[in-house]
Design a protein around this nucleic acid. Structure first.
Lengths: 193, 193
DNA sequence: CGAAAATGGAACAGCAATGTTCTACTGCCG
DNA sequence: CGGCAGTAGAACATTGCTGTTCCATTTTCG
């Protein structure tokens, strides 16, 4: 059937698209002002090919954003934030997010969000809501510090993730960085003993 | 004497320079890709005047960097990191840094550092050393968690400051944001009870 | 093999920011 | 008053990125 050609063709397109998306995320995370030529070089494709997939720069950035949100959504589901003790679940979420690696940098970079017309960034995702529910549950269970509101806890989680990711980038092992992160997280947002 | 004209002239120059530096810090913190025309407008001066004080864009950015490092140095001295119990001293440092406000954004923005040829950013300042000494002292006193190394503690301090600063930007009172920051800091890096 | 799809590279025009130069205006102080 | 420092604004050349078009080449698959 014609499906084979369609599949292989779509497969080729998908592969190229993914290469550009990944390279774009890595390059733009390090330097948000990098040119599309830099992205193309990092992806191992020609500059025109980048334009063939994403007609404008903002299209590429938006696509990277969608991609990261997808990854975060998938990681959140894998962590099963509704299962088991809240503090343990929060640690699982942390671990899954930490595995996202470079994608994290995109989340933290505000200057990209500035280049960004994109309202999807503002609106709450299902992952956001799941994380908020988890924190709320933790406070009700008495596992989280009642003096810290939900927003604060979530912000602290993300910032500790960022610090840990930077540390693993600086040469420390991922395991070590994650251990420090989780240990600090437990102490900082856990209920006072 | 000629000194009067010199003084007033220098006074005028210094005032303009300061306006450009402050406006530049504020504008570039929000959007590192902002044009010099934006900086000039924010400073209330002409674009040519900016070039008169900082011949190239990188000169302006470098000058802002020096300025921020100066402010951090002064804040560190005010906090007297050598006096009293280490945890209390660390909180004082945190308070002083928090007061730096917008200048903090400059410190966290990596994309500015990328635009930046500037090696001074890498090298350790006296403030860095003082903070490291304080953390070391805290661990020896048993006031800080012995499982967290100095680098980690310092990174956590900065990231909590960043989160608190963002929060006060988002509408919460500075007092409230600082309280959350200090409370979380004590728990996260303090010695386990 | 042969056609269609995908790509790379060159070339081009448009654009925005940069950095420079020159002129005219303003405020200040002797 | 008259000179001087500082400034704004216009005008200009330059540069680097962007987005587009066209063509030659490679890859893919029937």
């Amino acid at each position: 059937m014609g499906m084979d050609t369609a599949v292989s063709s779509i497969g080729a397109r998908a592969r190229t698209r993914r290469a550009i998306l990944d390279a774009g995320a890595a390059v733009l995370a390090k330097n948000p002002t990098a040119s599309l030529a830099d992205v193309a070089a990092a992806a191992g494709v020609g500059r025109t090919t980048v334009h063939r997939y994403f007609s404008e720069r903002s299209d590429l950035i938006a696509a990277i954003g969608v991609d990261v949100l997808d990854k975060i959504g998938a990681a959140t589901e894998r962590a099963r934030p509704g299962d088991g003790p809240a503090l343990t679940a929060l640690e699982r979420v942390c671990q899954e997010y930490f595995e996202l690696g470079e994608s994290l940098a995109i989340v933290f970079d505000e200057s990209l969000a500035a280049t960004w017309n994109w309202e999807s960034w503002e609106e709450e995702t299902e992952a956001d809501r799941a994380l908020a529910r988890l924190v709320d549950r933790g406070r009700e269970e008495g596992a989280l510090d009642s003096r810290l509101d939900t927003d604060w806890v979530i912000q602290v989680v993300w910032s500790l993730l960022y610090v840990a990711w930077q540390r693993s980038r600086s040469g420390d092992t991922k395991h070590n960085a994650l251990s420090l992160c989780l240990h600090t997280l437990r102490k900082s947002v856990g209920a006072a003993p």
